[in-house]
Simulated scan of single mutants.
Amino acid sequence: MTEYERSRTMPAQPEQVFDQAAHVDQLDAWLPAALHVQADDPPAVTVHEDHRDEDTPALLRSRPEQLRLEWGTRDRGSYAGWLQVAGLESGASEVTVHLSFFDDSHDPGGEDVQDALDASLRRLEEQVRLRADNTPG
């Protein structure tokens, strides 16, 4: 098993960050560009991976009371992950994404995964900023 984890501080309340991250119809805006999630019958989703041109049955569970998302493959059990949002005293948030690959053939490799996690967290922060900038008030 191989595990990866990255964190990023975002200048927004944890509930705002979680709401943006957990919005199933907007996951493509911050996930790695090669991954696309389609809601089936929640928590069931299908993840399309462009590089392999492959659809994978998966589960996506939102736990708003914990500000946590959890996901993983449905049938093969080769991959799982979670996203956790935590509030900071400054009013900002820390977002942590953790990935576990139980099947080495599914692991794209350390540098690729770390780069994808960093890029995803940057895109999530951009989405949170855009949403905050467009919120009336």
Rank of each mutant, 00 (worst) to 15 (best):
24 V>E: 04
27 L>V: 05
30 W>P: 02
31 L>K: 01
31 L>H: 00
33 A>M: 02
35 L>P: 00
36 H>T: 08
36 H>N: 10
37 V>Q: 04
38 Q>L: 04
39 A>V: 09
40 D>E: 12
41 D>G: 05
41 D>S: 13
44 A>M: 09
44 A>T: 08
45 V>E: 06
50 D>L: 13
51 H>Q: 15
51 H>M: 14
51 H>K: 14
53 D>V: 05
53 D>R: 14
53 D>L: 05
54 E>T: 11
54 E>R: 15
57 P>H: 07
58 A>N: 03
60 L>W: 11
60 L>T: 00
61 R>A: 08
61 R>T: 04
64 P>R: 08
64 P>N: 06
65 E>V: 01
68 R>D: 04
69 L>N: 09
69 L>I: 15
71 W>E: 05
72 G>T: 11
73 T>V: 11
75 D>F: 06
75 D>L: 11
76 R>M: 13
76 R>Q: 15
76 R>N: 14
80 A>R: 13
82 W>V: 02
82 W>N: 14
82 W>E: 15
83 L>N: 06
84 Q>I: 07
86 A>M: 05
86 A>S: 09
88 L>P: 03
88 L>A: 12
88 L>W: 03
88 L>N: 14
92 A>D: 14
95 V>G: 07
96 T>P: 02
97 V>K: 05
98 H>V: 15
100 S>Y: 01
101 F>H: 03
102 F>I: 01
102 F>A: 13
104 D>N: 08
106 H>E: 14
109 G>W: 01
